[in-house]
């Protein structure tokens, strides 16, 4: 037995070891049609741009209908994202990052509009509409004239004002990159003077963020909670059987038979015909007791809400129906 298991293990090892060139045989080939349907991204060299065309003039009404409510009729609205203007501001103290001022390639605009815009209905524009809206947005930054027609050949040739505005000369592109800013691990007398240069006005914090003590695990909050316990959401009338489980009645009382205490139906049988049974049992349930069914005492259940106690007793007296 032991030997055969070992042999099986060795065979299994051999089988796993023979998986060819790390191709696990998992996954299925993608069909050309599937790739074409999903591969919608567009690169700066135009790779990925579909057939179709549109002019800025054709884009204007589309833009007004689908884009202007967020970006403004002139692409100027900064409510969401200004998309026009700002050209030449990137060196200033108030740089305005827009499609016109920041993008290095117009293809990026096309790619983004077709995958993510309009914000509430992404991927709803046709290729022609996307070309037209792209042309109009570029026109809003005076990058192309109103009669410019964009297609898969002309779009990659649009020269963006910030084409030369990016650099890869930094250390943040690779885990092995060289950091541009260095501190030292000085331990003693590292600063001559230390003064607070910037802080938040107290009224700003209070007005913007409210009572910050509420953002912490605070004794104050716990005290409040424990003195005024949160009420559970208005109970969707739980079934008596569920209540019996919730309050662990069923741990001691079977439906029919005795477990530790009497079975529910045994109780029903004993009190059958007693007009005062409900009141009597309600009182017993709250106070607990011993002797009626044996010497094991029943603990008081006063913590069970009265409504639930009543539900349970009525259910028991009705013979604990399913």
């Amino acid at each position: 037995m032991w030997k055969s298991e070992l042999a099986a293990a060795i065979l299994l090892t051999l089988a796993v070891g023979s998986v060819h060139a790390k191709d696990y045989g998992i996954g299925r080939p993608a069909t050309p049609g599937e790739i074409a349907a999903w591969d919608t991204d567009v690169r700066p060299d135009g790779l990925g741009l579909p057939k179709g065309k549109g002019s800025a003039a054709e884009g204007e009404p589309l833009y007004e209908a689908q884009c202007a409510s967020c970006h403004g009729s002139f692409g100027e609205s900064n409510d969401y994202m200004a998309i026009a203007g700002g050209v030449g501001t990137l060196k200033s103290d108030a740089p305005l990052r827009t499609v016109g001022s920041k993008l290095d390639y117009a293809t990026t605009l096309w790619d983004y509009i077709q995958r993510a815009m309009p914000f509430t209905a992404p991927k709803s524009l046709t290729a022609d509409q996307t070309y037209a809206i792209t042309a109009y947005v570029l026109h809003l930054s005076n990058i192309v004239p109103l009669d410019a027609v964009l297609d898969q050949n002309t779009l990659p040739q649009v020269k963006m004002p910030n084409r030369e505005g990016f650099t890869l000369k930094h250390g943040l592109g690779s885990v092995k990159g060289k950091p541009d800013v260095q501190n030292t691990a000085c331990m003693k007398d590292c600063e001559k003077t230390v003064k607070v240069r910037s802080e938040l006005p107290a009224d700003f914090t209070a007005s913007m963020y409210g009572d910050l003590s509420q953002d912490f695990r605070s004794i104050a909050t716990m005290s409040k909670v424990s003195t005024t316990p949160t009420k559970p959401a208005a109970a969707v009338a739980a079934s008596p059987a569920k209540l019996s489980a919730q309050y662990a009645c069923s741990a001691c009382h079977g439906i029919a038979n005795k477990v530790v205490g009497p079975g529910m139906r045994e109780i029903a049988a004993k009190y059958k015909g007693h007009a005062d049974a409900e009141a009597k049992l309600l009182a017993k349930l709250a106070a607990g007791g011993a002797g009626a069914w044996g010497s094991v005492p029943m603990p008081p259940q006063a913590h069970v809400p009265e409504a639930d106690r009543k539900t349970l007793i009525q259910w028991i007296l009705a013979g604990a129906p399913d």
Binding site: R43, P44, K102, D111, Y112, F166, T167, L168, H170, L172
Partner: peptide, 28 residues
């Protein structure tokens, strides 16, 4: 074989320096 220059690596997530140049593909 070439980077895509998507919106989230040109318009955003590129670090504007005082000289007006933006550092691109600043991941680390």
């Amino acid at each position: 074989d070439k980077p895509w220059h998507t919106r989230e690596e040109t318009l955003h997530y590129s670090d504007l320096m005082p000289d007006g140049l933006s550092r691109q593909f600043t991941g680390i």
